[in-house]
């Protein structure tokens, strides 16, 4: 029970990371290796606004998120859109290049020192009595859980019931047909990148009190988010959420029963096993369509 609750706590952050990865991949077909690092950079922006320029925390966070939106849209427009017709691997290489560049730039600007961002909310932690053990859940963890839930449902309804959402789904299913409907597909891609990157930034800012702000702060989360996405079938939004929560719980049990050192390795083992036996993921579609 304890592992379950702690697992869901970690998992909701994985789910948040996975959600953005999946939105970008599903809409534009690009697996963004720089995804976590883009969030890291935004976390640094938030940190700088907060610690150097004395912004109130909330304003600093909003600045960081806005930065992420712009960074995502510019990346799509100027780095990826021009080479859309080339090949998938060309786009992968670009995102890898972004990863290196962002890491180097962050090191150059903010140096090696780990920086700290405070919790969004503090206060007395929640204490859950499980009979044998007491479980301590900080307010920040609770906030992450609730925020993830709100964002997940919000995203889901937005995509399902609004015109922009319809344009996003149409573009992701058939780019050319979407163009022929008069949908500005480039704008839709920019939207997906802006929104997706903002989710990475939010995850980084929420994780920052624990991971500290550091050029590699999002390394683990990127892998865990990727695993969550693969678990969910990579193109399914509910899949990303279920995958994230599941991974969180699995990691907790592995940490408890085998060794805490294996926690991150489990993510990679899951990716390998799943790709071998069920590449469509746990919620992926296996139904065949008529052509």
């Amino acid at each position: 029970m304890q592992q379950l609750i702690l697992g869901l706590r970690d998992g909701s952050l994985f789910a948040l990371v996975a959600l953005g990865l999946v939105i970008i991949h599903r809409t534009t077909g690009v697996l963004n290796f720089a995804y976590g690092h883009m969030g890291m950079f935004a976390a640094y922006i938030t940190f700088s606004c907060y610690a150097f320029f004395g912004f109130p925390l909330l304003l600093a966070i909003l600045t960081g998120l806005l930065f992420a939106v712009v960074l995502g849209m510019l990346t799509e427009k100027f780095l990826l859109r021009p080479i859309r017709n080339l090949s998938h691997s060309a786009m992968l290489i670009i995102t890898l290049g972004m990863l290196m560049t962002l890491e180097g730039t962050a090191l150059w600007i903010w140096k090696q020192d780990t920086r700290q961002l405070p919790n969004l909310i503090s206060g007395k932690p929640l204490i859950v009595n499980l009979g044998e053990v007491f479980l301590v859940i900080t307010r920040q963890d609770l906030l992450i859980f609730i925020l993830t839930a709100v964002i997940v449902f919000g995203t889901f309804f937005y995509l399902k019931y609004t015109k922009v959402g319809l344009a996003v789904r149409a573009s992701s299913q058939h780019e050319e047909a979407a163009k022929l409907m008069g949908i500005p597909v480039g704008g839709v891609y920019g939207f997906a990148w802006g929104f997706g990157t903002a989710l990475s930034a939010l995850a980084a800012i929420l994780a920052a009190p624990k991971t500290y702000v550091h050029p590699n702060m999002m390394l683990n989360l990127q892998i865990q988010g990727l695993t969550a996405a693969v678990l969910g079938g990579f193109d399914s939004l509910p899949g990303a959420i279920v995958g994230g929560l599941l991974l969180g719980v699995i990691e907790q049990y592995v940490g408890e029963w085998i060794s805490a050192d294996l926690k991150l390795a489990v993510a990679l083992i899951i990716i390998i096993i799943l790709l071998l036996i069920k590449p469509s993921g746990i919620l992926g579609k296996s139904s065949k369509r008529r052509v």
């Binding site: 319809l166 789904r169 149409a170 299913q173 058939h174 050319e176 047909a177 979407a178 022929l180 369509r289």
Partner: peptide
């Protein structure tokens, strides 16, 4: 332009 080969959005 109604394209060749229908080009519907299959999962809509």
């Amino acid at each position: 332009h109604c394209p060749e080969g229908r080009k519907l959005f299959p999962d809509l």
